[in-house]
Write a protein that binds this DNA or RNA. Structure first.
Lengths: 318, 318
DNA sequence: CCCGTCGCCGTTATCGCTAACATAGCGCTT
DNA sequence: AAGCGCTATGTTAGCGATAACGGCGACGGG
């Protein structure tokens, strides 16, 4: 017991014995067994974080926001990756909950029925992140992708573009990209316009795909005067291709992406984009998990962040 | 016990009771407590993975190799990030070992003394990855960065470049970048050459930094005819800058990066690089951890992978 | 001088599961 | 009818920590 007290800095132990314990622990190379500790105390200093992918650049940024916020709370994030597959998400969630974490942060609002039930019965704070367009289980932190798409459509129309193409991912499970597209279409519809042509991809180097898709869509529909990309990476590829092929950007052809990745700063021209508040989302989510025990177990907060439209150099200004 | 047997698929249980148990578990929403399970069985299906950063693109790729290999072994990776800080590495390692994982995969061969001691006494397989230039604790999977640098130097010299600049990160704790630089310098020295000028950066958008550094180094040393970048991202920034500013690449000025990230495929010209075998490193490391229990606890293997030089379009060919 | 308080440390009983062994019931042989 | 070998299920004793409480000097006030 005395050892336990020393190693956790809890309860009083005389300075003399404390020293002796630490000394002994050091020479023995003793590492306490958290498994036993967690079982006895019913407390686990882990927070489960479930995201669709690590190669998307967006999620590592969210993670870094989470880590930063958790840094000195004694909590530790544990990451699970679903590859955008609902069944994998369910499995990862089950696995995580079986370790009884102090909280769960999970991307998106769409889950299998079983996953939703698990989240509801987990008995720990749950934060669904990235997206606020829908019904959450507990707390929600994110942006409205639908409104983001709509907002972009309005900006494009205001800038005078009329023949609009959309380029995106082929993933049916990327609900946020889907919602952006829907919002975008609505925004166009409100002005009596529609998306004139679309192009989708999956897998491979996004930058390269951006080039290829741009070439393809412009070959097919040369009349287009604006291309809206569902992420910055393919947008960057498209931008490079357009510049190389002598398109007059943004006069003849406007371009925009989504996310606000800092990679864009190094491009020859600043691609129009919308910041998805990635780090901020991570921070807020972690804050809810870390703060919950103190703040009287309220739960169910919904925090909607406002993505900021950055016109950059690829949407003409009036 | 019967429930335990059903849920672990271990031992024989009649089909009838198995069904009843599963049914009950489902309606109760029962999730077994792995903490108690792990304590009792002294087995934990987690593998600790410790890496310096998630924003480097390289590490998510290693991770994806690890996940893929672990996919159906019943093992699960748990990621810890050190931000290139040795003290953080030590803390993360301690935290991980206190959960008694089935194995540890850790980037690099350089650790604090305490961390090394922990790895030695962990009593589980340890794989140090990315780098083979040094002494490992147990198994090692990686490439020789020193040789990679040297190899690049030789290729550059063979192509006839003579006035060579080096651009890299300012991080003293990035031992692999340092080793590449040392090997590179050795390679030049062997031909009676030296690095004519250097430029270092830290933080910020790598692509943008690549531009800025390239501009700076060429302004200061216009006679340079080759720029070696310590990673592909700054190399890509440099390439874009050179093309925009009318440099004749690769005739007047050659360029090369390091890593072989697939982003390069979307650039206007293919940057010369060297593949760091990232996914492969992840796979092999995971394979060692997963295979160890079977293969008779040998341990101590060193797997050196061969990075392949890709000349691309930015080193002139003879 | 007694008793309450405080500081420090030890004892006991869990936590929820699994390893290892025990038992019950059945069919079959001897 | 007893004994054997199965299979299917139950019992017991931990795993290594912590919560909760208990004990024991020392000290100080009445």
């Amino acid at each position: 017991m005395t050892v336990s007290r020393v190693l956790r800095n809890r309860g009083d132990v005389s300075e003399a014995t404390r020293e002796k314990v630490l000394e002994a622990a050091r020479t023995l190379g003793y590492v306490p067994n958290k498994i036993a500790g967690a079982l006895a105390s019913q407390r686990v200093n882990l927070v489960g974080v479930i995201i669709p992918s690590l190669s998307n650049l967006v999620f590592p940024e969210v993670l870094s926001g989470i880590s930063a916020e958790l840094e000195d709370t004694g909590l530790q994030p544990v990451v699970g990756v679903t590859n955008y597959r609902p069944d994998k998400e369910e499995a990862v969630l089950y696995e995580m909950l079986s370790w009884r974490p102090s909280g769960v942060i999970i991307a998106g609002l769409e889950h299998t029925e079983a996953a939703r039930a698990m989240l509801e019965n987990a008995g720990v704070p749950v934060v669904e992140i990235m997206d606020v367009d829908g019904e959450g289980v507990d707390s929600v932190v994110g942006i409205s992708h639908r409104r983001a798409g709509r907002h972009m459509a309005e900006a494009i129309i205001a800038a005078g573009y009329r023949k609009i193409g959309f380029l995106g991912t082929k993933m049916p499970e990327d609900h946020r990209a889907r919602k952006r597209f829907e919002g975008f279409s609505e925004g166009l519809a409100a002005a009596g316009l529609t998306v004139n042509d679309t192009e989708f991809y999956s897998g491979g180097s996004a930058l390269l795909k951006g080039r290829e898709m741009t070439q393809a869509i412009l070959a097919r529909s040369p009349e287009l005067d604006f291309l809206y990309y569902s992420n910055d990476m393919i947008g960057a590829g498209g931008l490079l291709w357009c510049l190389e092929n002598g398109y007059d950007v943004p006069e003849r052809l406007g371009l925009a992406g989504f996310n606000g990745v800092d990679l864009l700063e190094g491009l020859p021209r600043r691609l129009a984009t919308m910041d998805a508040c990635r780090r901020e989302i991570g921070r807020k989510a972690a804050e809810i998990i870390a703060g919950r025990p103190h703040s009287g177990m309220i739960g169910g907060e919904v925090i909607e962040l406002e993505p900021v439209l950055q016109l950059g150099d690829t949407i003409r200004r009036r």
